[in-house]
Computed example of a mutant assay.
Amino acid sequence: MRIISGKYAKRNLFTLKSNKTRPTSDKVKESLFNSLGQFFNGGNVLDLYAGSGALGIEAISRGYDHASLVDINHAACSIIKKNVA
């Protein structure tokens, strides 16, 4: 898993080694930001069920101002912290 575009493009992300989360594919992330990206200049992102935090980190990479990454799984929160660092 990696960041597709923006300031942090091509950086690899850590993911959970379990079946409890499913990473958002690059194709889905690209489609999401291509369809919504034109409507935002900066702004805030809320990523519930963040898993690895890839969607929120992608948003920051593309120029959003702030991302809140939320997950109930302790292991996922550790991976998110690792990816943000």
Rank of each mutant, 00 (worst) to 15 (best):
M1P: 07
R2N: 03
I4C: 08
I4H: 00
S5V: 02
G6N: 05
G6E: 01
K7D: 09
K7C: 01
K7H: 03
Y8S: 11
A9E: 04
A9V: 02
K10R: 14
R11M: 09
R11N: 06
N12K: 15
L13P: 03
L13T: 12
L13M: 05
L13E: 06
F14I: 06
F14S: 15
T15M: 02
L16R: 02
L16N: 03
S18M: 05
N19G: 11
N19C: 00
T21N: 04
R22L: 10
P23C: 06
S25K: 11
D26S: 06
K27I: 08
K29R: 15
K29F: 01
K29I: 00
E30N: 06
S31D: 02
S31A: 15
L32F: 12
L32E: 00
F33R: 02
F33Y: 02
F33L: 07
N34H: 05
N34W: 00
L36R: 07
G37D: 07
Q38D: 04
Q38S: 13
F39H: 14
F39G: 05
F39P: 05
F40S: 08
F40H: 14
N41M: 07
G43N: 07
G43A: 12
G43W: 03
N44D: 05
N44E: 13
V45F: 12
L46W: 01
L46H: 05
D47Y: 08
D47W: 07
L48V: 10
Y49W: 04
A50W: 08
A50R: 03
A50V: 07
G51H: 03
G51D: 10
G51L: 03
S52G: 12
S52N: 06
L55R: 03
L55H: 05
I57C: 06
E58G: 10
E58S: 09
E58T: 04
A59N: 10
A59E: 09
A59S: 14
I60P: 11
I60S: 12
S61Q: 13
S61M: 13
R62E: 13
R62C: 14
G63R: 09
G63C: 09
Y64I: 03
D65V: 08
D65S: 15
H66Q: 15
A67W: 06
A67I: 09
S68F: 13
L69F: 14
L69M: 14
L69D: 12
V70R: 01
D71W: 01
D71A: 07
I72A: 15
I72C: 07
H74M: 12
H74Q: 15
H74N: 14
H74W: 03
A75S: 15
A75H: 09
A76G: 13
A76P: 12
S78Q: 15
I79E: 10
I79G: 10
I80K: 06
I80N: 10
I80C: 10
K81G: 15
K81F: 03
N83F: 06
N83Q: 04
N83A: 07
N83V: 12
V84F: 11
A85E: 12
